[in-house]
Design a protein around this nucleic acid. Structure first.
Lengths: 342, 342
DNA sequence: GGGCGTTTTCGAAGCGTTTCGAAACACCCT
DNA sequence: AGGGTGTTTCGAAACGCTTCGAAAACGCCC
C-alpha cells in the first residue's frame, strides 16, 4: 500500500512529478521518468482508487442495472451482464452490479453519490420505472432494449422487426408457403420487454406483404409441443417455423415435430430469430438470427463511455442490423417465387 | 450534487455538525439535527462516494470474482453472483463484478487500489490460481467452494459428502438395494471444481458402508439417456438414482427412464443432490438436497463483512449442513432393513 | 458570580490523488 | 550582460468527506 508520496520520496522528486511520470499527461525528462517508474514498480505502488476518483471527479465505474423478476431468464441475463462487464473493462471501467429488487434504488444511489460514471440498463420493460428515473438523473445512461417511450433516451437493441422480416423472406424465398411463429409465453409478452411484440409485428407484416399463410402461437409451458400441435391444427400445410422464444421451447421443437412424424428440415424448415442461445447442441441445429449480447453490450458501452468522456449524449435509438447464420435447418421447396422480394 | 459544505451553510452549522448529524456517530442536539436533516433532504444531499471512501478508508464495495470458462454454467453462476450481490446490499455493500478472462488481474487490481474492501471468489477450481493470489493479498477474501489446498483460506461450501450420505441413506432406509449415481460430465470433474469428486467419494463410501449395490456414471452430452442405459446395463435391478449433475441431464432423466419402460417413483426412485436448479418444472419433480446459493452467499458475505469491519479473519472451512426437500420421487420399497443406519 | 461538569458545536488536520501556475534552470540571440 | 524561449520540476490548491481535540455554551451549586 505504498502512496504516491512514498514513491516521490524514494525517487527524490516531488509528488506531481510522480503523478505526471505515471500518467504521461505532461512531459517528464526520460531519465527521471524511468527512475520514477522503477521505484514505483519496486514499491509495488498502485494509485488509491478513492483518492483518484475524488481528485479526477470520475470513478471509472459503470453501474449495470439488472432487476430480478421471479421469472427472470438467468442465462440470458448473465450473458448480458458479463458481456457488459467485459466491454467495460476494455474501456478501462469496472462494473457495479445492481440486482436489488428495487432497481430504482440502486440506480439513484450510485448516480447521486457519484459512485458510477454511467449506467447500463438491462432487461428493459415496456413501461420501466427506470426510464423516468434516468430522465431525472444527470448521469449518462444507456438502455439495452426499448421501452415504450424512448423519448430523450439512448437505447440500443437488435432490430427485431427486421429480424422477423429476414426470417420470413428467407423462408418465402426458398419456396415456403405456410409459416408458423412460436413466440414467447403470453405472460412474458404482456408483462415483459417489448421485443417479442416487435418481432411479432414484423413477422405478421412481412408474411402479409409476401402473401403467404401464417399462424402465431405462444407456448404455455417450457416445451414446444403444445405450440406445434396448435400450429398444425391451424395450418396443416405448415412448412416453415420461426422461433422467437426461450431455449427450452426451441430445444424441444424437433422432438415435438417428431410426434407428428415431421422432421427438420425435410418436412418443415425452422429458423430461430432474436434469441441469445446457441442451437449447436440441439437435436437438430437451427439457422439462427442471433440476438448478439456481445455486440449489443459492446455498442452500449461504447456509447456510454463516449458520453462520459466527451459529454456527447444525444438521445438516440440504435437498432442493430440482424445477421443470418445458416445451419441447414431450412430446405428449399421447389416452387415458383410468389411475390418478388420487395 | 450538493456538498456537505452547502448543507452546513444552509443549516447555519459547521461541516462537522452536519457529518455527525447524518452519521449519528456523536450526539447532536435534537433540534439542530432535525434542521440539518431537513436541509439535507431539501437539497437532495447525498455524500460523495469517493470522498467518503477516501476519508473513511473503506469503499463499501465487495469484489465478486467469477472467471468465465467456455463451458461455464451461466445459470448457476448468475445465481451465485446475484445472491452475493443481494446479501452484500443488505450489509451495506455494493458489488463489483470481475468476469475478466484473467480473474487474477481483477482481483489484484481491486485489492491493490483499495477499490474493494473484500473479495468473494466464486467457481473455485481444485487448483485455482486465485488461491495463491489471495494468500499474498491483504484484502480479506472468502471462497465459495473448496480448492485442493485450503490452507490459510476462508472457504464456505455445501457439505457434499454429507449430502451424498444423506441421499444414500434415504434410499437405503426406504428399502432400495441398487443405487446409481449420475455425476457430472467427466471433463467437468477433471478440470473443474472439486465438489463432484467430494460427492462421488461420499456416495461410494456410504453405499459400501450400507452394503448395497451401486454403480456410477458420467453423462456424455446434455441428456441422461446414455447414463441411464449404462446404469441399467451394469445394475439391471436398479431401483434408486442419485443425481449430482446439470439441469439438462436431470430434466431428461424421466424421459430416459421411460425408454426402458420405467417411471419415477413407481419403478425407480430419484434424488437430485447438490444442485442449484429447481425440479418443480420437470416432468416428474424430484426430491432435492439443494446447493442453496442464497444460503452460501449470505454466509460468505457475513464472514467477509465481519472480517472487514472487525478484522477477524481466521482461516476456516465452513461446510453447510445439507437440507432434504421431499417432492415424492422416492417411493418406499417394502424390504427389511439391511444394515442399521450408522 | 465564580467554578465545575456536561452537552453541543466548531475548526482543522488528514485521506491520496490530480492539475494548474509558476519557479528554476539551461540555452541561444542580440 | 540582459532578455527571451523552452524544458523540467515543484508547490499548493483543490476534490468532499470523517474525525479528533478543544472551544463554546449551558446549567447548576455553593
Amino acid at each position: 500500500m505504498a502512496t504516491i508520496a512514498e514513491v516521490a520520496e524514494a525517487a527524490g522528486v516531488s509528488i506531481s512529478t510522480v503523478s505526471y511520470a505515471l500518467s504521461g499527461k505532461r512531459s517528464i525528462k526520460p531519465a527521471t521518468r524511468d527512475r520514477v517508474l522503477a521505484v514505483a514498480a519496486e514499491l509495488g505502488y498502485s494509485p488509491n482508487a478513492s483518492a483518484r476518483m475524488l481528485a479526477a471527479q470520475r470513478s471509472q465505474i459503470i453501474a449495470v442495472s439488472e432487476p430480478v423478476h421471479a421469472d427472470t431468464d438467468d442465462t440470458a441475463h448473465m450473458t448480458f451482464a458479463m458481456e457488459t462487464t467485459k466491454a467495460a473493462r476494455v474501456a478501462g471501467y469496472d462494473t457495479l452490479l445492481l440486482v436489488h429488487d428495487d432497481a430504482v434504488e440502486g440506480m439513484s444511489r450510485s448516480a447521486a453519490t457519484s459512485l458510477a460514471d454511467g449506467i447500463v440498463v438491462l432487461d428493459v420493460d415496456e413501461d420501466d420505472p427506470r426510464v423516468e428515473l434516468s430522465r431525472t438523473l444527470s448521469c449518462p445512461t444507456v438502455f439495452i432494449g426499448l421501452p415504450a417511450d424512448t423519448d430523450g433516451l439512448v437505447c440500443i437493441d437488435l432490430d427485431f422487426e427486421a429480424a422477423a422480416r429476414i426470417a420470413v423472406d428467407r423462408l418465402v424465398d426458398s419456396g415456403h408457403r405456410a409459416l408458423g411463429l412460436i413466440s414467447h409465453r403470453e405472460d412474458t409478452v404482456l408483462r415483459g420487454s417489448n421485443f417479442p411484440r416487435r418481432f411479432l409485428r414484423g413477422f405478421i407484416a412481412q408474411a402479409e406483404a409476401r402473401g403467404v399463410a401464417y399462424a402465431v402461437t405462444h407456448p404455455h409451458g417450457h416445451t414446444a409441443q403444445g405450440s406445434v400441435d396448435r400450429l398444425l391444427k391451424k395450418l396443416p400445410e405448415l412448412d416453415g417455423i420461426v422461433l422467437n422464444t426461450t431455449t427450452d421451447v426451441a430445444a424441444s421443437l424437433s422432438p415435438a415435430l417428431a410426434t407428428h412424424g415431421l422432421s427438420i428440415p425435410e418436412d418443415v424448415s425452422a429458423i430461430a430469430a432474436g434469441v441469445t442461445f446457441s442451437t449447436g447442441r440441439f437435436a437438430v441445429p437451427l439457422d439462427v438470427i442471433p440476438l448478439d449480447a456481445h455486440a449489443s453490450c459492446e455498442a452500449a458501452v461504447r456509447l456510454l463511455v463516449t458520453a462520459i468522456e466527451t459529454g456527447e449524449h444525444t438521445p438516440q435509438t440504435v437498432l442493430l442490423v440482424p445477421d443470418y447464420r445458416e445451419a441447414g435447418s431450412v430446405l428449399a421447396r421447389s416452387r415458383a417465387p410468389l411475390t418478388p422480394h420487395p
